[in-house]
Amino acid sequence: MNRLQGKRTLITGGTTGIGLETAKQFLAEGARVVITGRSPDTLAQAQQELGKEVIVIKSEAGEVSEQKRLAEQIAEVFDQVDAVFLNAGIGVFQPLAAWDEASFDNQIAVNLKGPYFLIQSLLPILANPASVILNTSINAHIGMPNSSVYGASKAAMISLARTLSGELVERGIRVNAISPGPVSTPIYGKMGVPAENVEQMAEAIRNQIPLKRFGEPIEIAKAAVFLASDESSFMLGSEMIIDGGMSTL
């Protein structure tokens, strides 16, 4: 299919998991793609997997100055950007008593502050029309223990989908959110949980999902394709919840 034929797109956190799969789906739909990541190793692996036509840029998602630099780099590649998938994020899950200011600030910087200022930095090159997609989380809705800061950061992103839609609609910029439930991605190995406990934790999570399985990255990527395409032109400030029924049953 060619739902994104010729569209100039940016995917942050595009080297693994949902971001990498979204890059593959965007390419399959005819898009021109820029991805970002922070690890030289995963950047190189993604470049090899996606092909030379994809532009790969090293960028720190939580640094405001990096967002300005990223926008400048993209402007050198594309005169305008038609679709942006703000996917980069981190998940730290721990009880309230364990948080300190530095770790709080880091999670908020990567999940909220950086994406906010990236949208601001991209404003001069966002096309009319353009689609901005925010990757949020079902944790903004379900009150999972130990997810207080993560859930708050994602709830703020859902709010941004609404408020920025109202602000940018006259510019032809649509902002929408995707809120995945648990998805099989490398994030679960990055949460500081001992390896021997990861499967135990995963099984406990699966038991909370009516469909009794984790989502797959392609299931989220397909939703991102839809929101980036003209098929979703009547969606504005909306949230697509893709969680296997976790938040509804």
Rank of each mutant, 00 (worst) to 15 (best):
N135L: 07
V54C: 08
S232D: 06
T16P: 15
K113P: 02
P40D: 14
A204L: 04
E29Y: 07
N207P: 01
S59Q: 04
F78L: 13
F78N: 07
L122W: 08
V84E: 05
V183D: 01
A130Q: 10
A23I: 05
A228I: 07
R171T: 13
S153T: 10
G30M: 06
I173W: 06
E101S: 12
D41C: 15
A195L: 11
L70N: 02
I205C: 00
V132G: 10
Q67I: 00
I241D: 03
P182F: 01
S153Q: 12
E63Y: 08
P95I: 02
V198F: 04
E170W: 15
K24M: 03
L96C: 12
S247M: 14
G166Q: 12
L43T: 09
V56K: 15
V54A: 03
F104M: 04
D105F: 12
S39L: 03
P186K: 01
N135R: 14
G6K: 11
I55T: 05
A155L: 09
V81K: 04
L160F: 15
A31W: 14
G237Q: 15
I187E: 00
V132K: 09
R174A: 12
S147T: 12
A161M: 02
A161Y: 11
T15M: 12
I209H: 04
V175A: 06
I241F: 01
I11L: 13
G189L: 05
Q45I: 13
T9L: 04
L20A: 03
S184I: 00
K222S: 14
D230S: 09
T248Q: 15
A155V: 13
T22K: 05
A224Y: 05
P145F: 00
E76K: 15
T136N: 01
I178E: 06
A223H: 06
E216D: 09
A228C: 06
S39I: 04
L118Q: 05
E72D: 14
L168S: 04
E196L: 00
F78P: 12
I138G: 07
K58H: 03
M240I: 11
A204N: 09
I133H: 07
I220E: 15
S232I: 14
G143S: 02
R32A: 10
K52A: 10
R3C: 00
T12E: 09
E21N: 12
K190S: 12
L123E: 15
N111K: 14
E53G: 03
S137M: 02
G181W: 02
L43I: 04
K58A: 07
I108E: 10
A155C: 12
A221R: 09
A195C: 03
T136R: 02
P194I: 05
G19R: 08
M144S: 10
E239P: 09
A228E: 06
Y116R: 07
K154H: 09
V34I: 11
R206G: 01
E216H: 07
M201H: 01
Q45E: 10
A224S: 03
A140F: 03
V54Q: 15
A152T: 13
V169C: 13
T42C: 02
G19D: 15
I119S: 12
V34Y: 09
A46W: 02
